[in-house]
Design a protein around this nucleic acid. Structure first.
Lengths: 198, 198
DNA sequence: GCAGCTATTGTGGGTTTCCGCAATAGGGAG
DNA sequence: CTCCCTATTGCGGAAACCCACAATAGCTGC
């Protein structure tokens, strides 16, 4: 699904038609406000966003989309050569920035790549969300023990550090592994992202 | 250290003077060719690169620098509004893209941020290089056992898979941990980057 | 031939990990 | 009050891990 946000209807229609001719579903939105109001949640999508529009301008729409947690990649379109806006958009995380007029194949190829990116990003986000949910299910003590485990600290030492019995550490350790769905400490360490450790 | 690559001497001198006044060491280069010829290796540096120059243009210089393994962040300067060049540079990994004329504080701030980025990137690269060297010191068998370890496979099963004695797996395991500088399997898993596992 | 390295294996002993079974205590929600 | 959950602990037995000491075999380089 491709969302086309542009105040000019002929542009929206032309792009919708182009994508339809390539078998890609597309929907036009006359303004950033309209899109933000609806905030459709579509998997495997991307957003084509015009820079200059009455009301909210493209870059402002982009900021608000990001603030609202929108993950779909954004391709900016502009009819005016404005380097600072282009640089700003890309540095803010836009997928690409195109000047009009553009080549049909170029925009289609770009959109398909953006959609593929969204797809893999969504899969990664789902995985990350599942992992985070499991982690959130840990009790405070279990989380504490896990951190120490992930620092390579043996059970006996964890017991010393926390002033509890080794048996208790074993209990927490076992519950951590069960809740996180890991067979052992190594598997647990491997499944967690780099920044979640230490 | 800041390297200023620009065919116009007044620009080089003005920038050099500006950075000197801020206590930042800078060196000017009249062409991309000159810089590529010398390929100075300076830690904690960045490169300010003009887009339009006789001979090799800025983007071409950038490509060659990257191909030569240059890690210093590159800030492009341009006197002409050219969106595709700006977009292309940023997507190719440039640190930033500035139009002339620019504000003194802006370029200094930018350069300092670029230098800091280079610094942390170099530290990360050194760490990664050290890790890779240790890993390269493993014998083929040790590497094989480590992969299985990192998959959470217990020693006894590794022995079954490789058709060797458990005692042999223990020997390899011990040598892997010693060479990699890890106390145990968990610490080993934690110290390796995500893509080096599985 | 000698030295160094990798790969392999066994013995024996010690440590660590794992966990069923059992129990207590405290806190929160219905 | 009852139920559920977390935190804690002990006992005992089994499995896994660790490693010194010792040894053999094969390959490579000097």
């Amino acid at each position: 699904m491709i969302h086309i946000i542009d105040d000019e209807e002929p542009i929206r229609d032309a792009l919708s038609f182009l994508f339809a001719s390539r078998g890609i579903e597309a929907q036009g939105w006359p303004s950033g406000e309209a899109f933000l109001q609806a905030q459709p949640v579509t998997p495997c999508s991307c957003i084509i966003l015009d820079v200059r529009m009455p009301g909210l301008a493209g870059p402002e729409v982009f900021q608000r989309l990001k603030a609202a947690g929108q993950q779909a990649p954004v391709i900016f379109l502009t009819g005016h050569a404005d380097v600072p806006v282009a640089v700003g958009a890309l540095k803010a995380g836009a997928f690409d920035f195109l000047e009009k007029p553009f080549n049909d194949n170029q925009i289609v190829d770009l959109a398909l790549r953006a959609i593929a990116l969204h797809e893999s990003a969504c899969a990664a986000a789902r995985h990350h969300k599942d992992l985070a949910a499991r982690r959130a299910s840990l009790s405070p003590r279990e989380e504490e023990v896990m951190q120490l485990m992930l620092s390579g600290v043996p059970n006996k030492q964890i017991a010393d550090i926390l002033h509890i019995a080794t048996r208790t550490v074993e209990v927490h350790r076992g519950r951590v592994l069960a809740k996180m769905g890991a067979r052992n400490g190594i598997e647990l360490a491997v499944m967690l992202p780099q920044d979640a450790r230490r």
